[in-house]
Design a protein around this nucleic acid. Structure first.
Lengths: 352, 352
DNA sequence: CTGAAAGCGCTTACAG
DNA sequence: CTGAAAGCGCTTACAG
């Protein structure tokens, strides 16, 4: 016969299951969904057939029909950066526990790539968005929660770091505990040129926080002590900036790095040019990977990446109506700010 | 009127565009797709309407109809591990350049979680798969290319490291250049218990390569010199193993770490217990992040993560019929093996 | 060059 | 408890 039990290549559909079980697609669908009004006999035959055909409902069809994809888009500058990779993982764990999947897009910190990513995600009809924006955010109709940076509008929520407080911790430790008076800053660039103004920008707040903390500590801040890296926060550019700082007629005795990759670049550049922390102390806002093993171990604020991702996911779940996921369901935009702590290691001058 | 031009929340559909342009959905679809047989006038009106409504074709519907999702699933143990994050990025860059998107799943190196991930990906009807398997691989109907490890069957291709050669480089350097005779190994566990036997397993090859290299160097290998970490290759477990090694009556004078996280754990454990490289030399198979800045800088094989992801993506594109993407289109399974080089730093005993 | 119609694989009112 | 039918938003033979 033509319809001998040849093992099909094409994945089984609900219709196949229904035929095999001798019921209608309606009943098959209901049985599989665990709905109440299905006879035990029908239910059993449907499940057996589904098992036998190793049926897996086509999510495209289901999503198209239901209007919900159970997919969340995550937009970050670069997943290969430890901070974002960990945040992704934190978010993913939380989301997958509720049946959502994650579609990841990199922007390389370019506003136009971010816009493209957002549109692609809309075309995929993601149910929600978690974004670490680089200035290219635009509303594409899906509820969005921001982390790390946040444009003001359109957001269901945002989870951000207390950048000002963090900077204060760093600067005051250098100034008061170690007596530094010439403290320089190597940080990420403030905003993407031409991009919309951020209500909350990590880069901006850190720079601002640095300036304020220096001011409050009663220290001078010559303009040449403030250096800004490239968009990608590459180690190489940070290394170059550190060297420029060293060549100043009055070089700083301490450097605050505004991001982990920047700290790594600064430390690498200093090798062979200056002793850390004797000649110049170095502290980092984000904790670099293996902070303890680097020579010298780098003083920084505690790790916050994983937590950021998790909290962002929880807020989004709340907005998606997934119940008691920690989000306030009242439609108000939720702003979580994560407090920071100083981890003293050796690069600031503290003893191991 | 009821249909006043209120800005709709619902995203525009092709039908909306067709109505706005005064043509049929067929024509609208064709105009947007850039097909030849459409009059200039119709084409212009359709594009204008699409623009005005900021129409973005629903990819669910398109995929359902076309039978292709332009999405590739990536299955890895843990995106938060630098090696996999970089591989992901390499693959993603290559894939996105051809219009594909990437769905990422973590397995935590558990075979059953891997199986779940694969089924979910099938439910999403991904066009292809790139997987770093932990022993849970099963054919779900999509063409798969492996990287890092590879079960034999069902594969379109695989890109693997020359683990044997790499181990040889590491061991010979320790034995011949530095005169070590008591060399121990801390590596990832060989296979996941109960999982299918791998034709190619990174963990297995490294262990095997270590044994052979030790043998060829004419050195003894007491069984207690070979230690195997947990599935997650956690730093903490590696640290414990290193300490056990140190407490042997005849402790090794050199340790080879089979993965970067393991090397980090070993190094961390040694702090305060032994000097590296004076008391015990340490080398790593994978290059840890900031290998140069760690104290001491860690000798390891060169970075290979990004390349692995890129090559895997190219092979998959070839299999998906995406033309001259570097893959042989002849249906044969393609096996690329990436050669490795030794990067001498200080942890082996070489001078900086 | 154009459009009516079928169909991708589901889910869900609606009517028995 | 069950099923026929409509419909999610596209694309693509097929027939003008």
């Amino acid at each position: 016969m033509a319809d001998a039990p040849i093992r099909e290549r094409r994945p089984a559909t609900l219709a196949d299951v229904a035929v095999a079980a001798g019921v209608s697609r309606t009943t098959a669908s209901r049985a599989l969904a665990g709905e109440p009004n299905v006879s035990e006999i029908a239910r059993a035959r449907v499940w057996a057939a589904a098992e036998r055909l190793s049926f897996e409902p086509n999510r495209l069809a289901r999503s198209l029909r239901r209007g919900s994809t159970m997919t969340v888009g995550l937009v970050v500058p670069d997943v290969a950066i430890g901070f974002y990779a960990s945040a992704l993982k934190g978010a993913q764990e939380t989301l997958e526990a509720r049946g959502y999947h994650v579609l990841v897009m990199n922007t390389e910190r370019a506003a136009d790539r971010e816009r493209d990513a957002l549109r692609t995600l809309r075309a995929h009809r993601v149910d929600g968005l978690i974004v670490a924006t680089s200035g290219g955010y635009e509303d594409v109709g899906a509820p969005a929660v921001f982390f790390d940076s946040a444009p003001g509008a359109h957001a269901v929520g945002a989870v951000v770091l207390r950048n000002g407080e963090g900077m204060e911790l760093l600067v005051e430790h250098l100034a008061f505990d170690h007596g530094h008076r010439r403290i320089a800053y190597v940080g990420p660039p403030d905003t993407s040129p031409g991009g919309p103004r951020m209500v909350y920008s990590s880069a901006h707040e850190r720079l601002d926080g640095f300036r304020s903390a220096i001011g409050r500590a009663g220290l001078p801040l010559p303009p040449e002590y403030v250096r800004v890296s490239d968009m990608a926060c590459s180690e190489a550019v940070a290394a170059g900036l550190a060297l420029e700082l060293l060549e100043l007629e009055r070089p700083p005795t301490a450097i605050v790095a505004g991001a982990d990759t920047l700290a790594i670049g600064v430390l690498a550049a200093l090798r062979g040019h200056a002793r850390v922390p004797e000649d110049v102390a170095v502290v980092s806002f984000d904790e670099p990977a293996s902070a303890d093993l680097i020579d010298p171990p780098v003083t920084s604020l505690d790790r916050h990446d994983r937590e950021l991702g998790r909290r962002a996911a929880e807020i989004l779940l709340g907005a998606l109506g997934d119940g008691a996921a920690g989000g306030s369901a009242d439609g108000a935009s939720e702003l979580v700010s994560v407090p920071l702590q100083l981890c003293r290691r050796r690069s600031c001058g503290c003893a191991g």
